[in-house]
């Protein structure tokens, strides 16, 4: 993953008015949807799970049990700032974009009351993630066996999967969705935290 080609920005990214909120509502809607697409593509390409409100990627948070995040060095570059044409989005505009994503179910504030904690960017929807994990387990013949969370997220077998190294909190929400759909059972240890799952 280290020698991945850099993200290719769309031509619109170099268009100065793209960084100013357009007064015409139709243009603004188009601008907004292009920003949403850009953010999703950018995060997917760079495997960014959490974005700070100012557009820089955030690392896995402290409650992650394995903060030995070896591959990911957070860059300070913000998607909302285009150095090449010297333009950046004003905070209120970026907030509007992120809120739009939340309302569309493409993102979720980690803490709605404290935006600084960051925002999950769902470049696949939770449903899609759940299906993807389910398919993978099915394809690799691991049904009805108990898997630890670590095995799925960091295991050798899932190394090439897109959900590899997924953010912990996000991963748990995916698992919870699977349970709800009846695809999996959670196995908790004595203090209530999730120890593993069993896909049925």
């Amino acid at each position: 993953m280290d020698n991945k080609p850099p993200f290719t920005y769309p031509a619109l990214y170099d268009f100065p008015p793209f960084f100013t909120k357009q007064p015409n509502s139709q243009t603004w809607q188009s601008q907004l949807s292009n920003w949403v697409k850009l953010l999703l593509a950018y995060c997917k390409h760079n495997r960014i799970w959490i974005l700070s409100p100012d557009g820089t990627p955030l690392t896995a948070t402290s409650n992650d049990d394995d903060s030995d995040n070896e591959e990911f060095v957070p860059s300070t570059e913000s998607i909302f700032n285009n150095e090449k044409i010297q333009r950046s989005i004003k905070p209120d505009m970026s907030l509007e974009i992120l809120n739009t994503m939340v309302s569309q179910g493409k993102a979720k504030w980690k803490d709605p009351k404290n935006h600084k904690m960051g925002i999950y960017i769902y470049w696949y929807s939770l449903e899609a993630w759940a299906d993807m994990i389910y398919d993978w387990i099915e394809n690799t013949g691991q049904q009805n066996s108990v898997l630890t969370i670590y095995e799925i997220r960091k295991g050798e077998l899932g190394h090439n999967q897109e959900f590899h190294n997924m953010d912990m909190d996000m991963f748990i929400s995916v698992l919870e969705l699977m349970v709800k759909k009846g695809q999996a059972q959670l196995i908790r240890d004595e203090d209530g935290s999730i120890a593993g799952i069993k896909v049925v």
């Binding site: 619109l12 268009f15 008015p17 960084f19 100013t20 357009q22 015409n24 139709q26 243009t27």
Partner: peptide, 22 residues
Amino acid sequence: GKVCVDIRLEGAFFYKNEILEF
């Protein structure tokens, strides 16, 4: 929405509306 505006320090600059047709 016929043109786009870019607010810079120097003031407002107007561009062809490339956003809508992008």
